[in-house]
Deep mutational scan, measured.
Amino acid sequence: MATGGRRGAAAAPLLVAVAALLLGAAGHLYPGEVCPGMDIRNNLTRLHELENCSVIEGHLQILLMFKTRPEDFRDLSFPKLIMITDYLLLFRVYGLESLKDLFPNLTVIRGSRLFFNYALVIFEMVHLKELGLYNLMNITRGSVRIEKNNELCYLATIDWSRILDSVEDNYIVLNKDDNEECGDICPGTAKGKTNCPATVINGQFVERCWTHSHCQKVCPTICKSHGCTAEGLCCHSECLGNCSQPDDPTKCVACRNFYLDGRCVETCPPPYYHFQDWRCVNFSFCQDLHHKCKNSRRQGCHQYVIHNNKCIPECPSGYTMNSSNLLCTPCLGPCPKVCHLLEGEKTIDSVTSAQELRGCTVINGSLIINIRGGNNLAAELEANLGLIEEISGYLKIRRSYALVSLSFFRKLRLIRGETLEIGNYSFYALDNQNLRQLWDWSKHNLTITQGKLFFHYNPKLCLSEIHKMEEVSGTKGRQERNDIALKTNGDQASCENELLKFSYIRTSFDKI
């Protein structure tokens, strides 16, 4: 039985969820670079991206490699990797027998973001014989899940209580170790020597080791999670996991709180800001991140802002960003909400898709409305799209047979046209069989910064309504002859009103 693990408890099935942008060198404390989270699957090609990484700022997932063999891993080693800020997950990587050479110096898994409450997941690794993470000293947050690894031993010899604050939620089941077939031998045991430290858990006094050649490092209890030197002297209180010299914040392997210019500090002093819960960055760093993602459509890219001495992905609820200094300031009234469309555009074809934009005031991208039916549609669209004030790209209304009016965009005031449909149009209306009105132009103002209007096959939309939009939106004169079809717009509506004058002759039985 794995020490510190839980057996036999019912657990939810383990679901495996399925960018080499360097964020800056980590400095003297770390020998390499800070790398983003990685999802490495199918083959070993991307694994080489770990070569210079000291910190993975995010998670590391290595999974679904069915053609790899043990010899493929023999020359692979990433000794610079010290810390993973989120979680480490391995799933069905064939041929991998140990992690001792792959990650010989991995010391800390912070667990800032977890995989279903777990910071370390080893699942269905069919050839893994031992973990071998002999320098792993601290899992700051989260638990361990090690399950269905039929060859995995050296679990009962690990004292997880020396690595985690609590072992109650560890789930370590259905491994070879369960069948008591392992016969784990710690260093020196074969020669009758006791080389590794022994600890007591559940009444068992057991030597602690990761492999037959690597003991588990056990520091004096007084050192807590700070770690200790090879001689057993406690590291500085700002260290986490390990250090090369005692009581020196510049000799830590990793930091308990924050890293700044080669030393570990309790908090980031001005003019620095907390970033990702582990390091200090200056304003320029946060500003660069903001600008890199301002026009990016890459998933996970955030326009970072500053709030409460932190550089964070977005302002919290009730705050909006001051564009001059990136500071989050309290909103006066309802907060603006910028919604970034991942692929640059979004099609609204149902109430469900409209709900995804609920509360958005600025759309960074283009909207395509293609709704053919739905219950209580006008009210639903207004509830979900009615706060949109600005669209950076274009607005396209296409084959939306259920629409009679666009009044559900009740606050839309600006279409920038930074991206144009077919390279020309910022407003595009095609084949809307029941569209009769755009907006009530006596109450609604709309500016279209650039781009043209396109109207074709809107049989109940009168040309007068379209011409009014040209005047109000500032697009009059931009359109070419064929942009607004004269014969297919309003051709099934009563669009022309003329005053009919009647004269009559009164007659009676005795007068003409």
Rank of each mutant, 00 (worst) to 15 (best):
S284H: 08
S225Y: 09
N242T: 07
L29Q: 03
F285Q: 13
L60I: 11
V55D: 00
R263S: 04
S296Y: 12
F283P: 11
T199M: 07
E147R: 01
D169A: 04
Y87D: 00
C328L: 02
T320C: 09
C215V: 11
F275L: 06
C328G: 02
Y272S: 15
S284N: 13
Q303E: 13
P270I: 12
C239A: 01
S324T: 08
I84A: 00
L29T: 12
R110C: 10
P269Y: 06
L332F: 12
P104Q: 02
N105A: 05
T250E: 10
E97W: 14
I109W: 00
H290P: 10
C252K: 01
P313N: 05
L128P: 00
N150W: 06
I222Y: 05
N202F: 13
R141M: 06
L29G: 08
S161P: 03
I185D: 06
I109S: 00
T329G: 14
L29S: 11
R162C: 13
S317M: 12
P70W: 09
K294A: 15
P271M: 12
P70R: 07
T221P: 04
S161M: 12
I146Y: 02
K100I: 05
W210E: 05
C252M: 03
I122A: 07
S225W: 14
G58P: 01
D86I: 01
F103T: 01
G58W: 00
C293A: 07
I84P: 00
S317A: 02
F116N: 14
A156I: 05
F275Y: 06
G262C: 05
E238S: 09
S323G: 14
V305N: 06
P316T: 03
A198T: 11
C280Q: 01
L99R: 00
Q299F: 04
N295V: 03
V34E: 13
K224D: 14
D86R: 02
E314Q: 07
N242E: 11
W278P: 01
C239M: 00
C53L: 00
K224S: 04
E97D: 09
N202M: 08
K176S: 06
N195P: 08
D165H: 08
S98Q: 02
S237T: 05
K80M: 08
L89M: 14
E49S: 15
K193C: 14
L64W: 01
T140R: 07
T68F: 13
D248G: 03
S296M: 12
L136G: 02
A119S: 14
F283H: 03
I312L: 05
N135Y: 02
P270A: 14
L131T: 11
R141T: 02
R162L: 13
C328M: 02
N282D: 13
L260C: 01
Y319L: 13
R162T: 08
R263T: 10
I146K: 00
A119C: 03
R297G: 08
L332E: 15
C315P: 04
N135R: 08
E124N: 03
T250N: 05
Q216I: 02
A190W: 12
N257M: 03
N170F: 08
H214C: 15
Q299A: 09
D72S: 02
K148P: 01
Q204I: 02
H28S: 05
N309C: 03
D39G: 02
M321L: 14
P31L: 05
L327G: 04
T189N: 05
F66G: 14
T189V: 04
L50N: 01
N282S: 14
C280F: 01
P336D: 12
S143N: 10
P249M: 02
T229P: 07
L63A: 04
D75R: 03
Y259A: 03
D72R: 14
P79L: 05
R41M: 10
N295C: 04
D159A: 04
L47E: 01
R298F: 11
H290V: 12
L131P: 01
K310S: 10
V34R: 08
D288G: 05
I222T: 12
E49L: 07
T250P: 01
G142E: 00
P271Q: 07
D169K: 11
C243V: 00
F205L: 11
N282I: 00
K217P: 07
L63P: 00
L240Y: 07
C153S: 03
D101P: 12
G37C: 01
I172L: 11
M321R: 06
S77L: 11
L88W: 01
I40R: 00
S244R: 11
K67C: 09
L136H: 02
R162P: 11
C315Y: 00
N149V: 02
E238H: 14
G95K: 04
N309P: 03
P104F: 01
N175K: 08
K100R: 07
I158E: 02
C286A: 06
M137K: 10
P249T: 08
D288W: 08
L64T: 10
V218H: 11
P330D: 14
H214W: 11
H59R: 11
C234K: 02
C328F: 01
H302I: 09
E97H: 10
F66I: 14
C286L: 02
T199W: 09
E124P: 00
V126A: 15
I306Q: 01
L44Y: 07
V144M: 15
N195E: 10
L289V: 12
S244I: 11
Q303C: 13
G192K: 15
I62Y: 01
I109F: 01
G262R: 11
C335K: 01
C255W: 00
L152R: 01
K100E: 13
L96A: 13
V305I: 07
C182F: 07
N309M: 12
R208P: 06
I109P: 00
F66Q: 04
N105H: 05
G232W: 12
I222A: 10
Q287H: 15
R145G: 02
Q276T: 13
N138H: 15
H236K: 02
G300W: 15
F103A: 00
L102R: 01
I163K: 01
H290W: 15
N308W: 12
Y94N: 09
V126I: 04
I40P: 00
P330L: 03
K217I: 10
F123Y: 06
R297V: 08
N149H: 01
N202C: 05
A230F: 15
E238P: 01
C153N: 01
L99S: 01
F283T: 07
D247L: 09
K191Q: 04
P104V: 01
H59D: 02
C53I: 01
F73V: 09
N43I: 03
N105T: 04
L128G: 01
P197C: 10
C234R: 01
I40N: 02
V305G: 09
L81F: 00
D184R: 14
N105V: 08
N43K: 05
C223T: 01
Y273D: 01
C234S: 02
Y273R: 07
T45F: 07
M321Y: 15
L96F: 04
Q245R: 06
S284L: 06
C286W: 03
V144Q: 01
V108R: 05
P187Q: 03
C196P: 05
Y304F: 13
F123I: 14
C335T: 10
L60F: 02
Q303T: 03
E207R: 07
L60N: 00
D101K: 04
H290A: 11
L240A: 10
G227P: 08
R162I: 11
R298H: 04
S143V: 06
R69W: 09
Y304D: 03
R162K: 10
K251W: 03
L88V: 12
I185A: 13
S98D: 01
P104G: 01
D277S: 10
L152F: 01
C53V: 06
T199V: 07
T107V: 06
V173G: 04
C215W: 15
F103V: 03
N308T: 04
T250F: 11
E130A: 08
L50F: 10
C239V: 01
C311I: 07
T85Q: 14
L120D: 00
E168G: 03
M38A: 08
L164R: 03
L164G: 13
H28F: 07
I109T: 00
A190T: 11
I185Y: 09
V206G: 10
G192W: 12
A119M: 00
N52I: 04
F78L: 07
P271T: 13
P36D: 01
K294L: 10
E314T: 15
F285D: 06
E57I: 12
S98Y: 06
R145V: 05
K292W: 12
D184E: 07
Q299P: 10
M137Y: 14
Q204L: 07
C228T: 01
I82E: 10
M321S: 15
P220R: 04
N175G: 05
D165M: 05
V121A: 09
C209S: 02
C243G: 00
F285T: 12
D177P: 14
K294M: 13
C228Y: 03
F258L: 10
G111C: 02
W160G: 01
N202T: 11
P269E: 06
G262Q: 03
I109D: 00
G192Q: 11
L63K: 03
G241A: 14
L326E: 08
